[in-house]
Every structure is written in C-alpha cells, then in structure tokens.
Design a protein around this nucleic acid. Sequence first.
DNA 1: ATTACATGTAACCAATATAGTTACAAATAA
DNA 2: TTATTTGTAACTATATTGGTTACATGTAAT
Lengths: 143, 143
Amino acid sequence: MAISTRFSVGIHILSLIATDEKMTSDLIAGSVNTNPVVIRKIMSMLKKAELIEVRPGVAGARLARPLSTITLLDVYQAVAVVPDKELFGVHAAPNPDCPVGRNIQSTVTPIFELAQSALEKVLAHVTLDDIVSEIEQKEASSS
Amino acid sequence: MAISTRFSVGIHILSLIATDEKMTSDLIAGSVNTNPVVIRKIMSMLKKAELIEVRPGVAGARLARPLSTITLLDVYQAVAVVPDKELFGVHAAPNPDCPVGRNIQSTVTPIFELAQSALEKVLAHVTLDDIVSEIEQKEASSS
DNA sequence: ATTACATGTAACCAATATAGTTACAAATAA
DNA sequence: TTATTTGTAACTATATTGGTTACATGTAAT
C-alpha cells in the first residue's frame, strides 16, 4: 500500500503556514480540499512533533523553527506514516527448525534498514524552505 | 503503514525453492509459519512475474531464472506491495485557486520519486543469491 | 483407472488503517 | 457575551492484510 497522504498534506499545511500565519484549519482545508477536522488532526501531530505552535481558540499557527531547519523527514516522522524504524514488515514467527526459517529475519532486516535509510536520507536533504522556494518560483515564472 | 510482509515471505519462499525444488506449499507454509493458501497466493504472483515455474498438480516449483539474476526489487515488484511508481500517496485534488494548492503536487512528486528510487536501488543491488549465501554462511558458522 | 496428492481460486472473515464527517467542549478575542 | 477557533471523541465507508474453508482441476504412481 502507498504511504499515507498525511505526508503530502502535512507538507502542504506547513507551506501554507510559512506564507501566512493566520491560516485557520478551515482555510487550509479549502486549499488541501478536504475536511477541516482532517487538517486539525494532522496539525495536532505537527504540534506534538514541535514543528508548529498552535493555541486553542486562536486562529492560525506559527512555525516552531525556521523553515530551512525543517526537513521533509521531520514531517514524515511527525505524521507517523510508518511505524518507527519499520518501513518493511517482516513475517513474525518463521520456523526455527528450518535453516531458512531460523535465519531469514536476521538476513533480511539489515537490507530493509539500508533501503529505508536510503529513502529517509533523500527526505532529510530537502527542507520546507526548498519546497516553498520552488512553489514561489513556479508562481513567478507562470505569471 | 508498513510495507506488506508478502515481500519478506516472497523472499523466504524463493530461498526455499532455491535450496530444494520439491518444496510443496504445505512444507513452505510450515517454514514460514502460515497457511498454505497464503503461500500459494504469493507463489501465484511470483509465477505471474516469471520468477518461478509451477504446474498444477505437480509438487514443488523451479526458479525461472538463475538465483544471481533475481534481485529483491524483482520480488518486491512481483508481490505488488506498492502501487506501481507510487510509494508515496499524494492528496488528489488540491485547490487550483491557491498558489500552494496549484503547485504542491508538481513540487512534491519529483522528490517522492527520488526517495522511492533510492529505496529501490538498494533492493536492486541485492540478489537472491546474496540472501541464500548469507543464510548458508550463518548456518555454517553456527554449527 | 483409481487413488492420493498438489496446485489454483473463489469466497469468506477479523483486524486494522485511511480519509472523511458530525458533534461538541473548551479557549480566545473582539 | 458573542462569534470564532482549536481540540477531540465518536462514528462511517472503504480498502488492505493475513488467514481460513471449500473445492475444482491437474498430475503421477500404483
């Protein structure tokens, strides 16, 4: 199955907040094209991860850190698209009486970790600043 | 959500077939520790991907290609753990009237593709031969 | 040819995740 | 005090996963 769209929505939300701190969950929902509660739930995750600051009753949110210090990996982990350190599922109880069964997990796991960290490395090298700049550039060149 | 264990089970199945062509789905299920039908369904995918040759009624299966030419990426794609070319889901209909909304998809997609192909590259560099050799080595050193 | 055994599927089930929705409490600001 | 907003609980529909039963079909060996 594909990785949840919470990730791309999270990036979308943060990009909006970066350009306008008075974005309410209703306005953001309008841009993402979904329900405001979906937005609030994802914002709640971003808040727990200390990427944004939000307060009940007061409209909008602020970035908790400078744009250039927030990586896509931070967002990816914040919205919990994947159980920590286990992008790849491994079948749990292979037969210890079989040579393959008793070695498959320890053989396959380090490779999965390599693949996972290769993916995360790419995400870690892109910041929200890159995203926002890219969007601004596209806007500028299309006008 | 984690990537389906069909992947690790697929590797397990192929490793067993590599070491013994007379492995029935019952025997394999015993080693994987699951139901034989689960095994047959995954083997059906491996067959469609032309990684193995199986015939109805006749016990066991054969590798369709040499061990060293089957990569983990081949297995990964064979068991369809991920919708083709879309490891990362992207929210479908952002608002075109918003600067962020109308650019988020085209900004984020190429990065997602980079991350995905970094992951796939790791899988493509490991062959089933590597896996089986590793298992044999672990067996030898533990005796 | 009959028997025994395998594969190949259809059809179902329980558990879980996703994305969306309604409803409402609590906090804030005007 | 009123209007607005955040924060959640609770619920829904849908889809995927992993497992299971049941059974038709194919093969080989006696």
